[in-house]
Lab assay of single mutants.
Amino acid sequence: MAMNGTITTWFKDKGFGFIKDENGDNRYFHVIKVANPDLIKKDAAVTFEPTTNNKGLSAYAVKVVPL
């Protein structure tokens, strides 16, 4: 089920960042999981599918909501 969130941290040079989800949890995401990576920036609103990996909470099918 899709969730909403906000990008809180973005490491462009490393290709990953973190999203604060609607429950207040931080989720890892990688640029290859983003549909529109050219719009990635700190504080951008996103929708995504929540999941977990071996390191904890993460996100896939991430879409940055255009302003």
Rank of each mutant, 00 (worst) to 15 (best):
V31N: 05
V46R: 01
T6Y: 13
T6F: 12
T6E: 05
T52G: 10
T6P: 00
F29H: 00
V34W: 03
K41Y: 08
G5H: 00
I40D: 00
L57N: 05
G5P: 00
G5Y: 02
L67A: 14
M3T: 05
G24V: 02
L39V: 07
K20F: 10
F11H: 07
G56K: 08
M1C: 13
V34G: 04
E22T: 09
G24I: 01
D25I: 06
T51D: 09
T9C: 14
I7F: 01
I19F: 03
T47H: 06
I40N: 01
Y28R: 03
W10I: 04
G56A: 06
V64E: 01
A61L: 09
D43S: 10
T9Y: 14
Y28K: 03
L67S: 13
D38Q: 12
R27A: 02
G56C: 09
T6I: 14
T51C: 14
A45P: 11
D21S: 03
T6K: 11
K33S: 15
A44R: 09
T47C: 08
Y28F: 13
T6L: 08
D43L: 10
K12R: 09
D38W: 15
D21I: 01
N4M: 13
N4C: 13
T51F: 14
G24R: 04
T51R: 13
A59R: 01
K20T: 14
N53W: 09
K14Y: 09
F48M: 02
K12Y: 08
V34L: 04
F29T: 01
K12N: 08
E49H: 15
L57F: 06
V46N: 01
V62Y: 02
D21Y: 02
K14S: 08
K63W: 13
T47P: 01
I32T: 15
F18D: 00
T9V: 14
I40P: 01
L39E: 10
K20Q: 09
G5T: 01
N53T: 15
F29Y: 03
K14A: 09
N36D: 06
R27Y: 10
T47E: 08
E22M: 08
N4F: 12
A44V: 09
G15M: 07
A35P: 04
N26Y: 15
F18V: 06
V62I: 14
Y60C: 13
P50W: 04
K55V: 09
F16Y: 14
K14P: 05
T8L: 10
V31H: 08
G15E: 05
P37Q: 05
D38K: 12
K63C: 11
K33C: 15
G17Q: 01
N4D: 06
A45F: 13
W10K: 00
V34R: 03
M3Y: 06
T6W: 13
P66K: 11
A44W: 04
G17V: 02
V64A: 04
G24W: 03
R27M: 02
N26K: 13
L57W: 03
V64K: 00
G24E: 04
E49K: 15
K20R: 14
E22A: 08
G24M: 05
A45W: 12
G5A: 03
F16H: 04
K41R: 14
P66E: 13
P66H: 11
N23A: 08
T51Q: 11
T52Q: 13
S58V: 10
K63V: 14
P66I: 13
A61S: 10
A2V: 14
E22I: 07
L39P: 03
G17Y: 02
D13V: 10
K12C: 10
D38L: 10
N53S: 13
V34S: 05
N54F: 10
G5Q: 01
M3W: 06
V62M: 03
K14V: 06
N54S: 14
K41H: 11
F29E: 00
W10Y: 09
D25L: 08
D25F: 09
H30G: 06
K20W: 07
D25C: 11
K14D: 06
I32K: 15
F11N: 08
K12Q: 09
G5M: 01
K63R: 12
D25K: 08
W10D: 00
N54L: 12
F11D: 06
K41I: 08
P37A: 07
Y28S: 05
V46P: 00
D43Q: 09
K63I: 12
I19E: 00
T47N: 07
T47G: 02
I32Q: 15
Y28T: 03
G56M: 10
T52C: 13
A61Q: 10
F29N: 00
M3D: 02
A35V: 15
W10H: 02
K12S: 10
A44H: 04
G15D: 05
E49L: 15
K33M: 15
M3R: 07
V65K: 09
F16N: 02
A2S: 13
N54K: 14
N23L: 09
K33L: 13
Y60N: 15
P50D: 02
A61H: 12
T6V: 14
V46G: 01
N26A: 09
V62K: 00
D13E: 11
K55N: 10
K14L: 11
N4I: 09
Y28V: 05
A61M: 11
K33F: 15
Y28Q: 03
N36C: 07
I7M: 01
K63A: 08
E49R: 14
R27V: 05
A2P: 13
T9A: 15
A61N: 15
I32G: 15
M1V: 13
G5R: 00
A44L: 06
D43G: 15
N26P: 05
T47S: 08
D21Q: 02
L39F: 11
K55L: 11
G15F: 06
K63E: 09
D43E: 08
V34I: 04
A44S: 07
G17A: 02
I7K: 00
V65G: 06
V34T: 06
K41T: 10
